[in-house]
């Protein structure tokens, strides 16, 4: 079986690097995007099993990006990943398939990814 492909969207380069290395270790194939527009472009041309989406980003934030993604690919699984948890209360985040608060401890992120992918 092919490795699941995950698109990590985050404006912080080192976060992207950390997630890439951590998730590759788990056997995922990782694509990277540094903002919402890049992510949408990538999603139009490539297939990803899951998008890990930062919320606070310059330009188009994660909530808007989430909305756009669901408009073009209704069934695209998306996990929101933000530095803080208050967006959990934000009803706009409910359409996402998961919500993870960023932490140095990546276990929760990995577990949520596995849950969403049904692994």
């Amino acid at each position: 079986m092919k490795n699941p492909r995950i698109l990590v969207v985050d404006d912080e380069e080192n976060i992207r690097l950390l997630f890439k290395e951590e998730l590759e270790e788990e056997g995922f194939e990782i694509g990277l995007a540094s903002n919402g527009f890049e992510a949408l472009d990538k999603l139009k041309t490539e297939r990803f099993d899951l998008v890990v989406l930062d919320i606070k980003m310059p330009g188009m934030d994660g909530i808007q990006t989430l909305n756009e993604i669901k408009n073009i690919k209704k069934d695209q699984p998306v996990i929101l990943c933000s530095a803080y948890g208050e967006f959990k209360q934000d009803f706009s985040s409910w359409v996402s398939d998961g919500y993870v608060v960023k932490s140095a401890d990546t276990r929760e992120l990995k577990q949520t990814i596995k849950n969403v992918l049904g692994l």
Partner: peptide
């Protein structure tokens, strides 16, 4: 505060994440 927290949180995640690695 939220903005500062956000700004601090990301570097923290990075420091902690790589330290773990």
């Amino acid at each position: 505060t939220a903005n500062i927290a956000h700004e601090i949180k990301n570097p923290l995640v990075i420091i902690g994440g790589f330290a773990k690695r």
